[in-house]
Amino acid sequence: MTAGLPRICHSPGFRAALALVGVLALGCFLNADGTFFKFKTHHDLLGAVAINGMLACGMTLVIIAAGIDLSVGSVLGVCAMCFPLFTMAQHWPAWLAFLACLAIGAIAGAVNGALITLCGMQPFVATLATMVSARGLAKYVPTFAGLTAGQKIQPTEGLGPPVFDLIDGRILLWEAPWGRVQLPIVTIFFLACVAVLWVVVTQTRFGRHLYAIGGNEEAARLSGIRVGWNKLFAYAICGLTAGLAGICQAARDHLGDPEAGFTFELKAIAAVVIGGTNLMGGRGGMLLTLVGVLIIGYIEKILSINNVQEAGRLLIQGAIIVVAVIIQRRRG
């Protein structure tokens, strides 16, 4: 009954791309006196989606394996506090602080994985618990810098160590006559996440095992796949991307905010779902998430440049999620 249409039209990638094209077309139509056509709008958007994008990349791995990670926002908060703590208060070299924060993120993810595989907790419950504790930990970090719990960590001179400006900066790609084409560094981190994780998911055995686990965990276990280790590794990678996102968030803010990342996990999950990855697991991919992240980012940007007020924004964003998921539904 679906004969006649080329096979590509049934792929989730096509539907996701269709949705993205639709959103871009809306942007052209509702361009706020031409603002949508300026390069600056798109540079800003690429910088703004990077953090959500990194969270969504790690989240995709976990969702493919039929799990969920609600703690990514809080882990982002912990690393967004630790990076300023290490660089501003403890004066560590930037590269050491960077690696330390990534390690903290990975360890947090591994804790999630251990709770789920070793203790047999449901992913929702386990990551809910770590979400709450990690937020408490993030608020505790300032005490290591001699401040009260819950206080922001501010730079002592100017805008902080040079690494903050480095990460918050842009690379000039091309000095075109009608504008400068720049790429924010955080976007490069995001695209690197997408590229690396795409290779992991499509080209490695680990990736194939995740799909199998997500599709049918019992069958995967019976066919000899070490389900526990694979799941733990997936959660650890999710924590690692959250750590990277935390470093980038701290760099963008030029300070350590204990509330950083609050409710970010919801937007990350929305990006994965809108991209077309199924929450039940076993299907989906990194490129779909990239499209999902851009769709969410562009909708927010269009609402922002058109100065839509808060109530309208929330209604519209909710409606978009419903619409996007309906479009993604598998037919036939």
Partner: peptide, 21 residues
């Protein structure tokens, strides 16, 4: 089935943006 929900979303978005601008 793909376009209709998109049109609904588009109409909502347009209404929101036009009114606010």
């Amino acid at each position: 089935t793909a376009v209709l929900p998109g049109l609904v979303a588009g109409a909502l978005l347009a209404a929101g943006c036009r009114q606010e601008s």
